[in-house]
Design a binder for these strands. Structure first.
Lengths: 148, 148
DNA sequence: TTGACACTACGAAGAGCGTCGTAGATAATC
DNA sequence: GATTATCTACGACGCTCTTCGTAGTGTCAA
């Protein structure tokens, strides 16, 4: 239970989703968005635990605390993908991509987008050889930021 | 705890990996491959539970039972990818692909492979409109096979 | 036949997760 | 100032996961 970086649970992810779309929020606000997905105190407790785990940050200045996701959606997505890559794809991104495309119905627009991205990426890889950064991931998240 | 299709846990995945590479195996064989990752009885217990969950099949003909993965590696990979897609990527395969490529260092060879796959897939999508099958996934896994 | 050994079955313990009830403190309302 | 509403904190329960010890049973060799 130490400061090991582990993956968020399903319930935690549900809360993070709200935090990502709404931005910094109170427990009540999160609870309202989630509807009857879970009770108020359940969400409160979860968010308290997430604070301990450093999954969210809490502003206790006012009586009603304000919570904020500690990691961006991009960072979390990347973390989770990396995890899945290691656990079941033997680290091969190609295999994962293949399954992702085989699994869901991907729209032609999405396919086009992916191809475009790949073209850019190939250019970058060929010239730089190793350095992979700089081609992808729209939304500006270059920071990789230390562990805990 | 009913027959709901859920994702295998980490420990279960470790066992499945052995089963996938070795084929049908006894508990001892799995334990040997896994080294001191876990004790013998731990693995035994896990595999018993996995049998109940229908994650593996067990041949009890001989005294020493023989276990076999109930789902192929491909099927499981697809299941897990779909799950991740739904939980954190809002169903967008494109986003997932982007993160997968941004996350790990993908070799130029792999990139080429992915691009080739995409070319084929685009052709199929444009003509058929919906039917996505038939383009990819080397390793022969056309079967989709019923739930439990 | 009697050990020594291998294998399965069973049970339990400890941790994490998700759920919620309730208590206690603070703010708002009349 | 008293009542009501709102919010956090705490503790507990049931469940799953992982781990392992131990018991029971079958197998084989000396």
């Amino acid at each position: 239970m130490k400061g090991l970086r582990r993956r968020p649970t399903d319930a935690e992810l549900a809360i993070l989703r709200v935090l990502w779309t709404r931005g910094p929020s109170t427990v009540r606000e999160v609870a309202e968005v989630m509807g009857r997905e879970a009770g108020y105190t359940t969400i409160l407790k979860l968010m308290q635990i997430m604070t301990e785990k450093r999954l969210v940050r809490r502003d206790e200045a006012a009586r009603t605390h304000i919570y904020e996701a500690a990691y961006t959606e991009d960072q979390t997505q990347r973390h989770l993908v990396t995890d899945l890559l290691d656990r079941v794809f033997d680290g091969s991104a190609a295999k994962l991509v293949i399954q992702a495309l085989a699994a869901g119905k991907t729209s032609p627009e999405e396919l086009a987008e992916i191809r475009k991205l790949l073209r850019e990426k190939v250019r970058g890889t060929e010239s730089a050889g190793e350095d992979v950064r700089g081609a992808g991931a729209p939304g500006g998240n270059e920071d990789r930021r230390g562990r805990q």
